[in-house]
Write a protein that binds this DNA or RNA. Structure first.
Lengths: 249, 249
DNA sequence: AGTCATAACCTGTCATAACAGGTTGGCCGC
DNA sequence: GCGGCCAACCTGTTATGACAGGTTATGACT
């Protein structure tokens, strides 16, 4: 009944996100199991000492994330969890960030870091003039010591030159932007394709040419809508997949 | 300034979803353009005669859908729209349903419709005993008269037998479930892979074996969590891609 | 003229309150 | 014993009110 110890509820973080993280931890730690019924909104209100709107805000976030689902008139239930080496698409996060949450170790190798002229697609995505210089960064990403993806990223020149001085091998660029540069991330637009590996890419990823790759085009923007980076990501399909939940209505 | 005529606000639908649809229509009709600033929450409150929480509810849904983004202290802005033949992952919807919204015509050809014994994966997903009979339906989906995807679906036997009597060629199964069977859909869990076409699949999709395919495993559940269908979807990568927006935090 | 402070505006966050409608289980009557 | 009705419970929806913190523009002061 009172499996949750009353949390300290640190200040400096919105209540709803504290409650969200607390519930997320409870579910991922196994304190609730698949299809267990969570406490009702009323119970959570008294347990955390907050209003219903705050509880619902936290629950809505977890529902969108796929961790739980609600049934009107019955209650709130824990979903079947997924613990495979997949990345959830419910929340914008870096590769290492996502993988370390799941107990994997991720690192990068920078293959290339140089300015280059922007083609039309890059220029459009980043909002710069075609032909102007942008920074290209090619990285090979490893999961548990094995190559998983090839990331080709294009940054606006000023941002790219600043990033060139950072530890790109060990840290997610997302975290550098957010913590070191105080640039709040907003959202990313993804298009998910499939393609087959050409000889070059296969050599870098350590697979055979002709193998299937998951190909993602991603434009990441700051909270104010400013484009930060255009990524072309090529994942080895045998080692990686995306996972997400979609809600009706 | 007053581009929106005051809407009738039909009863029988929640206010927030009426407002959401009204704004969605306004954006998709081009009454607002890319990066246009939407009316502030205060303005929308007075315009629609609702409270702020209702406006925010509507805006949050559209933000999650990727149609707009907000910047604290500035306002709410229209995103760059995408009108390519892609399916958005923001909302659970059928293939024909998604494509017709974008001006494409979709139809199916049923290749196979027969009961078969459930293997372990199917049994687990549908919550039935391994080896018990489930209904297998194989369909080829056409977009604008060209084959795009091969759908292999497994239904619980009773549901499958009922569906066997329906017009599966012309209608989305999602719509049959929702409208004819009054089964409210809840959510779907997707895993997105990539693979290469084998000879059989290539023949059916009209591509070459070795071509890249986008492969999706999808378990769709009713609002009460009951599994309805397990799909294995194989999309021709040259004719289809998924698109979605992810928000940070 | 330039700089700084302030007011106006906007979204983020949170509390309180109420009614509607679906679900479940218990009680009562047949 | 069985079936139907009702109360308790739960989520869905909506309103009102308030304060915090970021952004922008205006105006005052130097």
């Amino acid at each position: 009944m009172k499996a949750d110890t009353l949390p300290p509820l640190h200040a400096s973080q919105p209540l709803h996100s504290q409650i969200r993280e607390h519930l997320r931890a409870a579910i991922l730690d196994g304190r609730y199991h698949e299809h267990d019924k969570l406490p009702s909104e009323q119970q959570l209100m008294t347990q955390f000492g907050v209003s219903r709107i705050t509880v619902r805000h936290a629950l809505a976030a977890l529902q969108q994330e796929g961790l739980l689902f609600k049934v009107a008139g019955k209650g709130c239930f824990v979903s079947r969890p997924a613990a495979k080496p997949v990345q959830t698409l419910a929340r914008l996060q870096g590769f290492a960030e996502a993988m370390s949450q799941r107990g994997h170790t991720a690192c990068n190798r920078v293959l290339r870091l140089a300015p280059c002229p922007a083609d039309t697609a890059i220029a459009t995505a980043l909002g710069v003039d075609a032909g102007s210089e942008v920074m290209e960064i090619r990285r090979l990403r490893y999961l548990d010591q094995q190559p998983v993806s090839l990331d080709i990223s294009y940054f606006p020149l000023a941002l790219g030159q600043r990033l060139a001085r950072e530890d790109l091998a060990g840290r997610d660029i997302f975290l550098i932007l957010e913590n070191d540069y105080a640039t709040p991330l907003g959202h990313a637009d993804l298009t998910i394709h499939a393609c087959v590996a050409d000889t070059d890419t296969a050599g870098q990823l350590g697979c055979r040419s002709g193998d299937a790759l998951l190909h993602v085009e991603r434009v990441t923007r700051a909270a104010d809508g400013q484009p930060l980076v255009l990524d072309y990501l090529y994942y080895r399909a045998d080692r990686f997949s995306y996972q997400l939940r979609i809600n009706r209505s």
